[in-house]
Design a protein around this nucleic acid. Structure first.
Length: 893
RNA sequence: GCCGGGAUGGCGGAAUCGGUAGACGCGCUGGACUCAAAAUCCAGUGUUCGGAAGGAUGUGGGGGUUCGAGUCCCCCUCCCGGCACCA
């Protein structure tokens, strides 16, 4: 009588075994090649969610697979521990964010361990601890000294009731989430990373990342948004200037201050359409708009209206396009005509000069705007075979294929010629030049929040902004604070902000803003190389040992921001000498791009689940958890309806959406582990969908995964000590067939591991089990033992506990992680005869069995002789016969 | 609005280079075992016409290229991710 499959028992035992042997400790010195496998670290929100389980299972599968392939694997784990949710929880429960965060970390760490992750916990990193963030502050002071960090004003969401800055997430339908107040835009001073200075390198570096998904590289390239165009000026007539009030002083430190200018600068990628300009549109925050508004209460009101609402670009871009004539007129640089200046709510101050030339005839947005406000539409590009109609927009209007028309001396020039000629003429007048422009903006990192890394700056009335000297680092964040939702607590704590100037020794005030939490997550991958390093962000030798990360795994939602910031930080650290003198080579890339943190990237899809709800009396939806609902099916398993378990009454079936608190469709991974064990949870995650696709939760699928593991267990339990079987004797046909099935499935599994398509790896192991079960009664033990040992090894990265236990009990070895990865025996795959499909005009009509090396003449004869073929041909000869070796014969009639 | 991605049976998904569509699993149907149920095992299962043999049809929709299209090209619809202060 054998033991039944009991995941809780064997999983705990296997975990204790690996713990005791310190199996997952990564060696800094090793004769094996290194493999650094990194999953995006979690925010300690309270407990693991399915997205974590999926992410970390993928990482663990890759780690264990590489370990068995002979690599010295580093798989670390840590905590992205600063952030907004801790402050919200603090306010709700009156617990300091630090205490809440640390207790969450304790709990989630236990959960991660219970999943059986092969993590080197000796390298755990927690970003809210001073030994981590002190190095972030250290880098800040260096970058500040170099001018890579600078200060300027920037727009934020302002809640006028709570008197506080809101995150975009906290603005709901234009209102503050707690106060319900209409949100406004407000300018506040902030520190910025000059990421735009690295724009070109960040763009070009993408070409040296063959291990990144194309879609991520495309998104980053578009985000950086390099464009080649012309920046030029409309002069403001002196009479107009004289009518305006003097420009207000600003503290803009970037570029030339447009306010002081007598010119209105714009940027365009379509200089060839310059003769079609019928107005200029400027942002509501443009200094010229501000000045004009002082003469016009109407304009003032319009600008005030534009200040309403938040700063999120998605909201601004979907607003109804509105504008107002500023009354100002500027001079067209080439025609000398007076052009009206409009203020438009769709013009972004943060891009280019905050002003655009408007060519309604050749820009769709300008066209709509011109129609709405009855502004002239002047064609300046013609495309052969197309007629222009100023009433209806057509896509060709924006084409670059045409030539200039109604454009004076530029008539007949194509796009390139016209841009060149126009840029030259503007340059000759000193009113413009060709310019490369980026969409990317500098990264503002100041946050008016408590639970973040303090910005290491001291404000001295005499010396200005002084970086905190090394000896005074870290600037410690006090941990026993409960925020109240109205501004930053640090700004109300004299004990924190009162200080002396490191320069002159006079009384000074410490900066009370903290850093964007993206800053911590931009360099943690490097810290894992030497997590306790007390002399810098990372020990240069450790950095060279482990960096770049061989495989990075995380959600697709991080495709742009986090991944771009981390790439940027890698270059900042390099330029600061953090990695030492030598560059870190990125294997397979050119020397120039020895500068990327992540060699390979896998972006995992989301975990989604069905939603259920009931409409309440007040019209609101009450979302019900899938675990509390039963879905009824008809005989063909089509859903008929759903009822709530507790009362048996019907509920409405909603869509399938990302697991979230708001839709109450989250499934707690802990419940799955408790009921079925970690192996089942891991197996289901890997089997239900390929890693990059969305994964749909299914209780029945989990059940199926468990059943499969129990079948593996039961099969193995029918035999004892399979490893002790003697050499195989001459093989029967059944045994050859079994070996072929096993090695065919192994070949598929090996290929699918290499391309990270784990769902079909699982499918291959299922085929192995099916083949073994079918053959077990009729084959020699040696052949069976070979099959079982292959099955266990292929399964072991995915369901490590089960594989380890059976590996041990059958005497294959003490630890399956030390086993060699199985190799395909090509000789087992060979077949003497193959089936060829017969097609007529591309339609399947039958098949023939031929020798594997049959020649084409023979195959053609055999195919044409088939009854089906003869019937279809009806005596007429075939027009053509196409033979695809090993696959099919297509007869064209 | 802009950028990126996706759509294949009742469901999750497979099809590696343009060459047998639906592997593998779930569900469902029938059977075996059982006093019965659960569990397990066996068989079947895209749709449709047909007693069967066999035929037609079928990868979101419309067009195209090709001997041959889930796969390539053009147009469209719907769904999802991101949009700089959620992480």
């Amino acid at each position: 009588m054998h033991q039944p499959y009991s995941p809780q028992t064997i999983e705990i035992a296997a975990q204790l075994h690996w713990d005791a042997a310190q199996t997952f400790r990564a060696e800094d010195q090793s004769t094996k090649p290194n493999y650094y496998c990194l999953s995006m670290f979690p925010y300690p929100s309270g407990k693991l969610h399915m997205g974590h389980v999926r992410n970390y299972t993928i990482g663990d599968v890759l780690s264990r697979y590489h370990r068995m392939k002979g690599f010295n694997v580093l798989q670390p784990m840590g905590w992205d521990a600063f952030g907004l949710p801790a402050e919200n929880a603090a306010m709700a429960n009156q617990v300091p964010p630090a205490a809440w965060t640390y207790s969450n970390i304790d709990y989630m760490k236990q959960q991660l361990k219970r999943l059986g992750l092969g993590v080197d916990w000796s390298r755990e990193v927690t970003t809210c601890k001073p030994d981590y963030y002190r190095w972030e502050q250290w880098l800040f002071t260096r970058l500040f000294a170099k001018g890579v960090i600078y200060k300027k004003t920037s727009k934020v969401n302002w809640d006028p009731i709570d008197n506080t800055v809101l995150a975009n997430e906290q603005v709901i339908d234009g209102r503050g989430w707690r106060s319900g107040a209409l949100v406004e835009k407000r300018d506040i001073p902030m520190y910025f990373f000059r990421i735009t200075h690295y724009a070109d390198e960040l763009l070009q570096g993408l070409d040296h990342l063959p291990g990144w998904p194309e879609q991520v590289k495309t998104m980053q390239a578009n985000w950086i948004g390099k464009s080649e165009g012309v920046r030029f000026a409309f002069e403001i007539p002196s009479a107009v200037l004289a009518s305006l009030p003097a420009p207000a002083a600003t503290n803009q430190s970037e570029d030339t201050d447009p306010a002081s200018s007598k010119q209105l600068w714009v940027y365009t990628t379509r200089a060839d359409t310059i003769m079609g300009v019928t107005f200029v549109a400027i942002a509501a925050e443009h200094p010229l708009a501000t000045r004009a508004a002082q003469n016009s209460s109407q304009l003032f009101d319009f600008i005030e209206e534009c200040k309403q609402g938040g700063v999120a670009e998605a909201d601004i871009a979907t607003l109804e396009k509105k504008g107002m004539d500023s009354g100002l007129r500027v001079i067209h640089p080439l025609t000398g005509a007076l052009v009206p200046v409009w203020v438009g709510n769709y013009v972004l101050m943060s891009y280019g000069d905050g002003a655009v030339m408007a060519v309604p005839a050749h820009d769709e947005r300008d066209f709509a705007f011109a129609q709405k406000y009855n502004l002239p539409i002047q064609q300046s590009i013609a495309l052969e075979g197309h007629a222009f109609n100023a009433r209806v927009w057509q896509d060709w209007y924006a084409s670059k294929e045409g030539v200039c028309i109604h454009s004076g001396k530029y008539n007949g020039l194509n796009y390139v010629q016209a841009v060149d000629a126009i840029a030259a003429d503007l340059a000759a007048k000193n009113l413009g030049e060709k310019k490369v422009q980026f969409r990317l903006r500098d990264w503002g990192i100041s946050r008016q929040r408590y639970w973040g890394c303090p910005i290491p700056i001291i404000h001295c009335p005499h010396c200005g902004d002084v970086p905190v000297p090394d000896a005074q680092l870290p600037v410690l964040l006090p941990e026993n604070v409960v925020p109240d939702g109205a501004g930053s607590p640090l700004a109300k704590m004299p004990a924190f902000y009162e200080c002396t100037c490191p320069n002159c020794g006079g009384a000074a005030k410490r900066e009370t803003d903290t850093m964007d939490t993206f800053v911590e997550s931009s360099w943690y991958y490097a810290r894992y190389a030497s997590p306790q390093c007390a002399t810098g962000m990372v020990d240069p030798a450790a950095a060279h040992n482990w960096l770049p990360v061989d495989q990075y795994i995380g959600g697709i939602e991080h495709a742009i921001l986090h991944l771009l910031y981390a790439r940027f930080f890698h270059k900042l650290m390099r330029d600061e000498g953090v990695f030492g003198e030598r560059p870190i080579p990125l294997a397979g890339a050119t020397a120039k791009n020895a500068d990327e943190p992540f060699k390979n990237l896998l972006t995992q899809g989301m975990v989604v689940a069905p939603t259920f709800f009931r409409e309440e009396a007040n019209g609101k939806k009450r979302w019900l958890n899938p675990a509390d609902v039963v879905v009824e099916m008809d005989a063909k398993a089509r859903p008929l309806g759903a009822t709530l378990k507790s009362d048996g009454l019907p509920v409405t079936i909603g869509g399938t959406e990302k697991m979230s608190k708001s839709k109450n469709n989250g499934v707690d991974p802990q419940a799955i582990i408790d009921q079925y064990g970690a192996d089942t949870a891991r197996l289901f995650m890997m089997f239900a969908a390929p890693p990059e696709q969305q994964l749909e939760w299914s209780d029945a699928g989990v059940e199926g995964a468990f059943r499969f593991l129990r079948r593996v267990w039961n099969l193995a339990a029918e035999f004892e000590n399979l490893s002790a079987t003697s050499q195989a004797q001459a093989l029967s046909a059944d045994e050859q067939a079994l070996r072929r099935d096993i090695h065919l499935a192994l070949k598929q599994a090996n290929f699918d591991f290499s391309r990270h398509q784990f769902n079909t790896v699982v499918s291959a192991t299922m085929k192995m089990l099916n083949a073994l079960e079918k053959a077990k009664a009729s084959v020699q033990r040696a052949v069976l033992a070979e099959g079982v040992s292959i099955l266990l090894r292929v399964l072991s990265p995915i369901t490590p506990h089960l594989a380890q236990t059976l590996w041990q009990t059958h005497g294959f070895g003490a630890d399956i992680l030390a086993a060699t990865w199985p190799e395909v025996d090509e000789s087992a795959l060979v077949q003497d005869e193959i089936d060829l499909m017969i097609q007529i005009n591309g339609k399947l009509r039958g098949s023939i069995r031929v020798a594997k090396d049959a020649d084409k003449t023979h195959i053609e004869q055999r195919a044409l002789a088939q009854d089906v073929v003869q019937k279809q041909m009806a005596g007429a000869p075939a027009k053509k016969v196409i033979i695809v070796p090993g696959r099919l014969v297509n007869i064209v009639l």
